[in-house]
């Protein structure tokens, strides 16, 4: 027991405490001016904004995928079920170079899109695509067990009381999936905000346009501007604490809401 705590302290707690201690070197004004500088603000806005958009897409597409996987039988269903985990399993750098190659102007998808006048790689759209890629398993895997366990009698009751299928799905089934959907959304969002490897290749990394916050941390570190790097890191860390807290609350809410049968 003591051993666990010691190990955790050495590996997790001390390094994180170090991060906060380092920010104390800065006066509040210094901290504030770093955070509100144009480049930092743009990077944070790009990271959080595009992550939010990507998480929204994941929410919708994740729900559709879960529905197809759980409710329907089609050829290759189990294969596609396994495929959902690939973004979890594929190292981020590999995903990054693969997506870039795919969406680059001469790539398999990049070329036809370029003819339509849509440029994906090396633009903010590229960042968005990479974030959608890495976020999709989170929504699917959090909602899947809940949809499988959903009591069929509730649906049957709704239908037998005269609700049409549309009503049953949107008034009865989806509301009971809300805690799981929100948890999946929050996890996908958190992952996208912090994501580095799969985004930096496709992003283009133009300051103020397509530069994500984690990359700005790396750039500041390579310039030996440790204080700047730390300040940005602290903001991101606080954001992820808020998200973890929200997820924990959501899960508690889900447990009290859905009666276990």
């Amino acid at each position: 027991m003591g051993l666990t705590l010691t190990w955790l302290s050495v590996i997790v707690l001390i390094p994180l405490a170090g991060l906060f201690l380092k920010t104390l070197d800065l006066s509040f004004d210094q901290f504030w001016s770093i955070i509100t500088s144009r480049r930092t603000l743009s990077a944070l806005r790009i990271s959080f904004g595009l992550s939010f958009a990507a998480a929204c897409v994941n929410l919708v597409m994740g729900t559709i995928i879960v529905w197809a996987l759980v409710r329907y039988r089609f050829p290759g269903r189990r294969l596609f079920d396994a495929i959902v985990d690939i973004p979890f399993a594929l190292p981020t750098a590999v995903a990054g170079v693969a997506l870039t190659q795919l969406f680059a102007q001469k790539g398999w998808l990049g070329a036809p899109l370029a003819e339509l006048g849509i440029k994906v790689a090396f633009t903010p759209i590229g960042i968005f695509v990479a974030m959608v890629f890495i976020g999709i398993p989170f929504v699917v895997r959090t909602v899947q067990p809940v949809l499988i366990d959903l009591d069929p009698e509730i649906e049957e009751a709704a239908a037998s009381l005269g609700a049409n299928r549309w009503h049953t799905v949107f008034r009865v089934i989806l509301p009971s999936l809300i805690p799981a959907l929100l948890t999946g959304f929050a996890l996908a969002f958190a992952r996208a905000v912090g994501e580095y490897g799969s985004v930096i290749f496709i992003a283009g990394n133009l300051p103020n346009v397509s530069e994500i916050a984690p990359l700005l941390i790396v750039i500041r570190l390579s310039e030996f501007r440790y204080a700047d790097a730390t300040a940005i890191a602290v903001v991101m860390l606080l954001a992820s604490f808020v998200i973890i807290f929200a997820v924990n609350r959501l899960q508690r809410w889900a447990q009290t809401r859905i009666p276990t049968h």
Binding site: L16, G18, L19, Y226, L237, I243, I244
Partner: peptide, 21 residues
């Protein structure tokens, strides 16, 4: 929570803390 933490921290920040130490 402490055990879960590395999952929700950006990998870049995970590296940064060791640079700071």
């Amino acid at each position: 929570t402490l055990i879960d933490l590395p999952f929700s921290v950006s990998p870049v920040i995970s590296g940064l803390v060791f640079v700071l130490l």
